[in-house]
């Protein structure tokens, strides 16, 4: 007996929930050959606004946890990704028209990158921070801290949608930032599957918010948004990204430039999305 097909509804991921777009819009996601794959939500500027509100609300909790705790929470995501490996491989094979072996290598690389970043959660402060030399009887210490809400345009390449997303989201949240990320427009399905992993992990709702849709439409609203603290233009090469940088400068955001493909794991990427806090303290009263 044949079964009724149960197609999956791909929605947005905002504040730990999976809403449809406020606008009610969807767009068709197709394979590279043009065959229909799924309908994905086409996010509007109001979805971006709601995502920023959710991300702002999540800052205090996420940045307030210890680095050790964040590291454990992030490592747990890697464990869940490993358990869902087959699903991600299937989705990538369908969406990117690659062989199962190539898709499998992408998933493995993404999980490895995630684990690599998770390990930095309780270490980047020691490496990037500093005890500054001073000519007096006090300590002077500089430590990097989360910058706040980071808006990200994920890499938009024809392949590598999962790896691209992981390579920009993980370095942002390691230090306690919360993110609003615009997924790969052509193949957003693995991004929403990653959201399902995040929703069932220990990451608080609102730390990662994933929008699917047109970066050209949504990115300007995020770049100009006064409540966004940093803008990662990794996947914005095809956009008018200089204009986005100028808009971001109006509210003194940190801006990372476009990348060619998925940025490889690096400590610089973590530190680029932090603010340095310098404090002093007397050495002794004796």
């Amino acid at each position: 007996m044949s079964r009724l097909a149960v197609p999956k509804t791909y929605k947005l991921y905002i504040g730990g929930k999976f809403p449809r777009s406020e606008s009610g819009r969807t767009y068709e996601v197709a394979t590279r050959e043009g065959a229909f794959l799924a309908n994905a939500a086409l996010a509007s500027r109001k979805d971006a606004r709601d995502a920023v509100v959710a991300a702002r609300a999540a800052i205090a909790g996420w940045a307030g946890t210890t680095g050790y705790n964040r590291g454990q929470v992030l490592y747990r995501i890697a464990e869940l990704l490993e358990g869902r490996r087959a699903q991600f491989v299937d989705e990538l094979v369908a969406a990117e028209a690659v062989s199962a072996a190539v898709a499998g290598r992408q998933v493995d690389t993404a999980i490895d990158a995630w684990v690599w970043y998770a390990g930095w959660a309780d270490k980047y402060v020691q490496v990037a921070g500093n005890g500054n030399p001073v000519s007096g009887p006090y300590f002077n210490l500089s430590t990097p801290e989360a910058t706040g809400v980071v808006a990200i345009v994920a890499p938009q390449g024809a392949t590598g949608s999962l790896l691209g997303l992981v390579s920009v989201v993980a370095p942002a949240i390691v230090s306690g930032n919360t993110v609003v990320v615009i997924a790969n427009q052509a193949s957003p399905l693995s991004a929403i599957s990653l959201a399902e992993v995040l929703a069932t992990s220990d990451v608080p709702g609102g730390v990662v918010n994933i929008l699917t849709g047109s970066p050209a439409e949504i990115a300007p609203w995020l770049a100009g948004h006064a409540d966004v603290n940093a803008l990662d233009l990794a996947g914005a090469e095809a956009l008018a990204w200089v204009d986005l940088q100028i808009m971001a400068a109006d509210t003194l955001k940190r801006v990372l430039p476009p990348e060619n493909g998925a940025p490889s794991p690096s400590l610089e990427r973590i530190v680029a999305l932090t603010e340095t806090k310098t404090v002093w303290h007397t050495k002794s009263l004796i």
Binding site: W221, G224, H225, A226, D227
Partner: peptide, 12 residues
Amino acid sequence: QKLSTGRYSGPD
């Protein structure tokens, strides 16, 4: 502020 500048403002 959103209406007058055309951009979203924030609690800061």
